[in-house]
Design a binder for these strands. Structure first.
Lengths: 343, 343
DNA sequence: TTGTATGCGTTATCAT
DNA sequence: ATGATAACGCATACAA
């Protein structure tokens, strides 16, 4: 009682009752006298009793804890997802263990091992840029352990994925630029290992084709690092070379769009008059920029919430992972602001 | 082995050995033959054995898990702190359980209860704006349970706090504005319940006094909500009324600074020519704005890392919470950019 | 209405 | 070099 918490046994000893009686009384079991219940609860309160969730976990082989593996916490989109996850988990009585892979495959692997050791009931994953093998996931999936992937979803048969419609979002953004009269639209692409990169590039291409515009391979610029500096440099080079002559940029993410904005400004180009720009993700700062940056909004919090609901439903066997719908696609929303509106 | 994980007992049965032998072999205890060790490890590998951390926790009364309670995840500064926490925890073999209070006292209280139930080894806390009583902390502190507070640190005797030097940061920012020739500097303050709000306001006042400038109470504008809209509206009102006539704004946070920027732009004022602006926190987007926003950088990741190191040192009894230094103050760094540089 | 015994997975202690 | 037993805190099947 001084050091360790008071346990059921302590209460039992104090009241000259058996541990089982205490356990039952605290949970309002039928066959316990009201008098005993009262006394037990009183004493529990007095002794500052707190049930030991660890002991409970061991007994039930359930920890009421889920794991979350994300590339990094300091990332607006992922932070919104985590917020949604935490929200739903908390409301349904689950804890959230969080680890960041820092975009390292190795840490992703060790994280999932640690989590399994900790008997978590399920895990939510957005895999790292480095991840090119999925054995560490399939291995545990095959054991019947619940995993729900979000945003960055692997092409594993049977895996449950929650994503946004990257293809459609990119299609909408590009179509919007075309409708504003931009004709030579360059796409700043992401890391090639991610499916979202390919989906967004495909949406971009499809929009061009649908509108009878040519698709030039050299109009798709990979930005693997994803920093402002990288895209700023690449766009600057593009603008100073005479080969391409772009009049708009659709970036795979907002950081890339900011780099493009800066490069255009450096080159003396007016936004949106000379050049139109649209980003992807609709980070917080988009509406704080001058001009306000158009972007494709992704429902991050909703994605986290939905993914968690699905995971918990699987854990609680409210749905059957075998027969259920394997992929949930959330809609994006184009936020067309000043950076891309000529009319 | 089909459903649940393989346990030590399963290996024991398979090898016709006792559980204790398996346990020892796996941990390379001295008195076990190399031959047995080899066989055991082989079988463990084959059966895909994973130690049950829950059982270990129960036995050792230690979970190797720490809790983190923050107001919200979707907040650049807090996300950097969490990143630092997670980093250090992971490297020292601890898990991190994360909850957000959503600035609600009630959730803060229930969170800490849940965490204690889960036998976490210690907790890192930044309390909510709503928190006006600290009983829920003192109660567990008095039981000898380790808590380290960061950023928002309570005035509890004996509590261990890791903060930045808000006073000095505000002093530096204000001094910088004065040095740039601004004379009528308004302070956009934060929620009055937070100590950081008072410290920053005091640093602002001290800088004015030191430079022989008057301190007008009506030059300190409280922005309790902390939204762009709020500060934009308040600054607009201020600019249109003839009473104050400010030529600079030092905001308690970057969001407030952005609101001020927008209000100034709306009023046709040039930044930094007519009005100088400095924010606090140096969020990611500061250097993406036009003009680039000056701000006081807070070492969020470092704060998380330091707080975690202290907490783990206490948990592992490497330092004594009684005799140790109770408060660690980290330095801020003024990032003077275009929004406040006239010369 | 209450008590006893057992087991969840692991390891420390005390045998052999 | 290995085994048997007890214990961590709790819940439950079975007894009384």
């Amino acid at each position: 009682m001084k050091l360790g918490q008071a346990t059921i046994k302590d209460i039992a000893r104090e009241l000259n009752l058996s541990a089982s009686t205490i356990s039952r009384a605290l949970k309002d079991y039928p066959g316990i006298s009201d008098e005993t219940k009262r006394k037990v609860k009183e004493m529990a309160e007095k002794m500052n009793y707190r049930p030991n969730a660890i002991a409970l976990s061991l007994r039930k082989s359930r920890s009421f804890t889920i794991g979350v593996i994300i590339p990094e916490v300091v990332h607006f989109f992922f932070s919104t997802v985590v917020s949604g996850i935490e929200e739903v988990a908390q409301s349904r009585g689950y804890n959230v263990i969080l680890v960041q892979s820092n975009e390292k495959l190795e840490r992703e692997i060790s994280s999932i091992e640690t989590m399994l050791s900790n008997q978590i009931d399920g895990v939510l994953v957005s895999y790292s840029k480095e991840t090119n093998t999925f054995e560490h996931f399939t291995r545990v999936l095959d054991q019947g352990f619940p995993i729900v992937f979000f945003d960055r979803a692997p092409q594993i048969p049977g895996a449950i994925n929650v994503m946004v419609d990257d293809y459609q979002g990119a299609f909408d953004a590009t179509t919007h630029l075309i409708s504003q009269g931009y004709k030579n639209i360059v796409h700043l692409a992401g890391p090639p290992s991610l499916k979202i990169t390919r989906d967004r590039a495909n949406g971009y291409k499809a929009a061009l084709e649908k509108n009878g515009l040519p698709v030039h391979p050299d109009h798709i610029i990979p930005c693997p690092l994803g920093t402002v500096e990288e895209s700023q440099k690449l766009v600057s080079e593009l603008l100073s070379s005479s080969a391409v002559n772009p009049d708009a940029f659709f970036a795979c993410n907002d950081i890339g769009a900011v780099g493009a904005m800066m490069a255009c400004r450096d080159a003396g180009l007016k936004i949106p008059l000379d050049v139109g720009i649209v980003g992807f993700s609709d980070w917080q700062f988009c509406s704080m920029l001058e001009p306000k940056l158009s972007s494709v909004a992704q429902p991050g919090t909703l994605m986290g919430a939905k993914a968690t609901e699905i995971l918990l439903d699987i854990i609680e066997k409210k749905i059957d992972p075998e027969t259920m719908e394997k992929s949930l696609v959330l809609e994006t929303k184009l936020m067309d602001r000043d950076s891309s509106k000529r009319f």
